[in-house]
Computed example of a mutant assay.
Amino acid sequence: MNPSRAQYGQIVTRSAASQIADRLEQEILEGRLKVDDRLPTEEELAAQFGVSRPTVREALKRLAARHLIRSRRGPSGGNFVTGPSPDDLAQSLGTAFALLMATDRVSLDEMAVARLELEAICCRRAAQLRTEEHLAGLRAELEIQRQSNLTDQDFCESELRFHRIIVEACDNALLRFMMNAMVETLMPISNMIIFRLRDRKAIVEFHERMAEGLAHRDAEAAIAALSDLIAYIHALYARAQQARAAQLARGE
């Protein structure tokens, strides 16, 4: 189907820009508008939808914000359908996770449980599919984490890389997408809460057990270490919450 000849029907409600953006997004999701297809001009879309050009322009801005179209100038320019990159989508999902926690729609405990269940699946697959390169990456991060003079920020960044390697080793694009969004959102938030209470050596020991389990292709050993790590973090959450409640009670 030629997208320039598509007939979408007139929009008559006050939220015209939103409806137009949603209608065009549906066309993209259903494959009627494909990546690199050129959208009709603003004038053509305004005529097809029965709205003004500023309304169409606002709808196109919404699509661009969703990473669904891109603009190109020049004689052959216009608005073109684009596919959002996995990094763009993961960042959006991570932002959604952070907002859910910030507004108390999802607790840190709930997020930790979700992380455990999803990362356990990754560990199970990684135990089968990991390569020597993955193991070398895990061991390199462990060497970094054992450094006594490592800053908290560098330790946290190494933690992220360690778990990212496990996710990469599971060799599943959808799991990688979900886990990278979750881990890279949850871990910085949890580290900010518990970094004064945690024992780095304990965390490194959990990581060592996970790496050892994966090295021996022992998924259950890796998952047991992961479960112990999450339980340790859960206990620190509780301590941090108790300390915060005590401060509030004292009016600090």
Rank of each mutant, 00 (worst) to 15 (best):
residue 95 T to D: 03
residue 48 Q to H: 14
residue 154 D to V: 00
residue 207 H to M: 05
residue 236 L to N: 13
residue 203 I to M: 11
residue 73 R to M: 13
residue 96 A to K: 05
residue 20 I to A: 05
residue 240 A to R: 10
residue 83 G to L: 15
residue 122 C to F: 02
residue 207 H to N: 09
residue 92 S to I: 11
residue 219 A to T: 11
residue 2 N to Q: 11
residue 140 A to D: 08
residue 194 I to C: 02
residue 118 L to R: 04
residue 212 E to F: 11
residue 121 I to R: 12
residue 4 S to F: 14
residue 241 Q to P: 09
residue 39 L to W: 00
residue 31 G to K: 00
residue 183 V to G: 01
residue 186 L to S: 07
residue 244 R to Y: 09
residue 179 M to Q: 12
residue 23 R to Y: 02
residue 162 F to H: 08
residue 193 I to D: 01
residue 47 A to M: 09
residue 186 L to K: 08
residue 242 Q to I: 03
residue 146 R to H: 13
residue 161 R to A: 12
residue 95 T to S: 10
residue 73 R to K: 10
residue 132 E to I: 01
residue 170 C to Y: 01
residue 188 P to H: 04
residue 23 R to N: 09
residue 8 Y to F: 15
residue 175 L to A: 12
residue 172 N to P: 05
residue 158 S to A: 15
residue 199 D to V: 03
residue 38 R to A: 12
residue 42 E to L: 11
residue 176 R to T: 02
residue 217 R to A: 10
residue 164 R to T: 04
residue 3 P to A: 05
residue 152 D to M: 12
residue 43 E to Y: 04
residue 43 E to N: 07
residue 4 S to W: 14
residue 220 E to V: 02
residue 222 A to W: 08
residue 140 A to C: 01
residue 234 H to Q: 15
residue 3 P to L: 02
residue 89 L to N: 10
residue 13 T to L: 02
residue 34 K to P: 00
residue 69 I to M: 12
residue 96 A to C: 12
residue 110 E to K: 03
residue 92 S to W: 10
residue 202 A to N: 08
residue 238 A to P: 06
residue 124 R to D: 15
residue 9 G to A: 07
residue 250 R to Q: 09
residue 177 F to H: 14
residue 199 D to Q: 11
residue 42 E to D: 06
residue 178 M to F: 06
residue 178 M to Q: 06
residue 103 T to A: 09
residue 218 D to G: 02
residue 16 A to G: 13
residue 185 T to K: 09
residue 75 P to H: 15
residue 52 S to E: 14
residue 169 A to Q: 06
residue 82 T to V: 08
residue 245 A to V: 04
residue 166 I to C: 04
residue 112 A to Y: 02
residue 234 H to V: 00
residue 26 Q to T: 03
residue 203 I to W: 01
residue 100 L to N: 10
residue 22 D to I: 07
residue 11 I to H: 00
residue 129 L to S: 04
residue 76 S to Y: 13
residue 77 G to S: 13
residue 110 E to C: 03
residue 153 Q to P: 03
residue 85 S to D: 09
residue 70 R to P: 09
residue 5 R to M: 12
residue 252 E to R: 02
residue 216 H to I: 00
residue 8 Y to M: 14
residue 84 P to M: 10
residue 121 I to H: 08
residue 251 G to H: 00
residue 73 R to N: 15
residue 128 Q to E: 15
residue 72 R to E: 10
residue 126 A to I: 01
residue 81 V to T: 09
residue 181 A to C: 11
residue 22 D to F: 02
residue 5 R to P: 08
residue 27 E to P: 04
residue 49 F to D: 05
residue 12 V to K: 10
residue 107 S to G: 13
residue 139 R to A: 01
residue 57 R to C: 14
